[in-house]
Simulated assay, not measured.
Amino acid sequence: MTYREAALIVLEASEQLMTVGEITEAGIKRGLIRPEDKTPVFTNMAVLYTDGRDGQSGRMKRIFARRKTRVGPGYVRLGLN
């Protein structure tokens, strides 16, 4: 299963906005993804963010937190359209 497919399943089950780290952790715990790399959160982040940038995210939406700086955990949350 791809990171994208796992993210959709996790988001459907949670019915709330989640960070990429939360999505990745839930996907691993549920056995949806079995990462072979050392940094699965960053791999998933790259997949989901480039999908959103390229217009391939389909049902996923990105929500940006309101704060003064863009950096830091939890700035971008993902949900379903």
Rank of each mutant, 00 (worst) to 15 (best):
D54G: 07
E5F: 01
I28W: 00
I9D: 08
D54A: 11
L80F: 02
V20F: 00
E5D: 14
K68Y: 12
S57R: 01
A46C: 08
G27R: 07
A6D: 04
V20N: 11
A65D: 11
R30I: 06
F42T: 15
G31H: 05
T24K: 09
F64S: 08
A13M: 09
R77L: 13
L8F: 03
R67P: 02
V10D: 00
G52S: 13
Q56K: 15
G72F: 04
V20R: 12
G72D: 01
L17C: 06
R70E: 04
V71H: 15
S57A: 14
V76I: 15
E12Q: 12
S14A: 15
L80C: 06
E25H: 11
L80W: 05
E15F: 03
R34L: 11
G72M: 07
R34E: 15
A65N: 09
E5R: 08
R53W: 08
G27Q: 06
T39R: 05
M18V: 03
K29V: 03
E12H: 12
D54H: 12
E12V: 02
R30Q: 14
F42E: 15
M1F: 04
E36P: 02
R59Y: 07
G58M: 11
E25S: 13
V10L: 01
N81K: 15
D51W: 10
L8M: 08
L11M: 06
Y49N: 15
P40R: 06
Y75I: 07
T69M: 09
A26K: 13
A46E: 11
T24G: 04
R30P: 00
Q16M: 11
A46M: 10
M45E: 13
T43S: 03
L48N: 01
F42Y: 14
R67H: 06
E25V: 05
D54K: 14
A13S: 14
A65P: 02
L32D: 05
Y75D: 01
D54L: 15
A6C: 09
R30C: 10
T43R: 03
I23H: 03
E5Y: 00
S57C: 00
R59M: 14
Q16D: 01
V41F: 05
P40C: 10
E36D: 14
E22W: 04
D51F: 11
I23A: 03
E15S: 13
R34P: 03
A13I: 05
P35H: 09
R30L: 14
